[in-house]
């Protein structure tokens, strides 16, 4: 009989929350494309899109509509199943990560406490790490299935890049975990709420995480898998219509999620200074916290774009040298020092 005693409110809450988070990431990704073009234009002394709607705000809709109406081309010699699977995996994985990010504290709706986190799993960081590693499969499968040497080269590059930069990312995270003693993102935020932000204790760790996040999301200067001028667009060379749209969208969602992750793990997440001495109702405080997190995310997204329009792409050997000979030793040193300090403080 236990099967029938389902907490319907719980299910409804989670479904609503999942939809809200999904819609949020999609909208943010959509407007990131607009923001990207605006930032690029401003940095290059231009105006950027300003024709579709006020300030060009309808531009993403026009772009999306265009992508939907484009002809769907699947190359004859491609592996049809994998060709379709590639962008699907990329998109799905990009959306999955947002499940464990605490978007805010608890809201009380009609007497029910509603946590603004889809799933507070106690292995949150491990989950994210796992899902991020699957993310490259979308690129690899897509590049392989295209049956095109440029796409294949791009997927090889993507795979080796992810391997090289996941190691320092993991090592940087281990240092953070030694400090916080938990894998749950919610607890990490709660710790920062009553203390300084983690970036104060882990500046080097944050820096390493930031750089590797650029590499994991294939953003410039680490956008070798989609190098336009060497690989004709790389892994999405053969893609058209909404499948191409999925790949491009997945990149922006990844950027959004990595920004959210960095804000959560190193910059206090939904916590902001003076939060608990504000003296407003808990619900309002939760909303304010969500807004604080959102502002932090937007700052990071701007930073991603700012770097993209400043730094030229690395050469492949520079990428590898940076990954293996700079990032990993730095991350190891950071981990050892953090470990020693944590050990010393315990005694």
């Amino acid at each position: 009989m236990t099967l029938l005693s389902i907490d319907w409110f719980f299910i409804l809450e989670k479904i609503l929350l999942i939809s809200a988070v999904l819609v949020l990431s999609l909208v943010v990704a959509m407007y990131s494309t607009w923001g990207e073009r605006k930032v690029a234009a401003w940095i290059q002394d231009r105006l950027g899109p300003n024709r579709a709607g006020p300030m060009g705000l309808l531009q993403p809709l026009a772009d999306g509509g265009k992508l939907f109406f484009k002809e769907e081309i699947i190359p004859t010699n491609s592996n049809r199943f994998l060709f379709i699977l590639g962008p699907s995996v990329a998109m799905m994985v990009a959306c999955m990560t947002s499940a464990v990010i605490p978007w805010g504290d608890t809201l009380t709706i009609a007497g029910h406490p509603v946590s603004l986190q889809v799933a507070d799993v106690n292995i949150g960081i491990l989950f994210i790490f796992g899902v991020l590693s699957v993310g490259v499969y979308g690129i690899m499968i897509g590049g392989w299935a295209s049956n095109n040497k440029y796409s294949l080269l791009a997927s090889v590059r993507a795979a080796s890049q992810i391997i090289s930069y996941e190691l320092p990312m993991g090592l940087a995270l281990i240092a953070l975990l030694m400090l916080t003693g938990t894998l749950s993102l919610k607890e990490i935020v709660e710790q920062q709420r009553h203390d300084y932000w983690n970036v104060v204790y882990q500046p080097l760790g944050f820096f390493i995480f930031l750089v590797t996040a650029f590499a994991e999301t294939n953003r410039a200067p680490f956008d070798l898998p989609e190098a336009e001028n060497e690989l004709n667009g790389g892994y999405h060379l053969e893609y058209s219509s909404m499948k191409l749209g999925f790949y491009l969208f997945a990149e922006y969602i990844n950027m959004f999620v990595s920004s959210a992750l960095m804000a959560t793990m190193y910059f206090g997440g939904y916590a902001f200074p003076g939060m608990d001495s504000l003296g407003v109702s808990p619900n309002l405080l939760t909303i304010l916290g969500f807004l604080a997190l959102f502002v932090k995310i937007l700052v990071f997204i701007f930073f991603f774009m700012w770097v993209r329009w400043t730094v030229p792409r690395f050469r492949y050997d520079q990428l590898m040298r940076l990954g293996w000979r700079v990032m990993i030793p730095l991350a190891l040193a950071n981990m050892l020092i953090t470990g020693a300090v944590v050990l010393a403080r315990q005694h």
Partner: peptide, 19 residues
């Protein structure tokens, strides 16, 4: 060098647009 370059690009955000 990257920080220097980013300073330059940031300054350009507020420059008069050529468009």
């Amino acid at each position: 060098a990257i920080a220097k370059g980013m300073g330059i690009t940031f300054k350009h955000i507020f420059k008069r647009k050529a468009t």
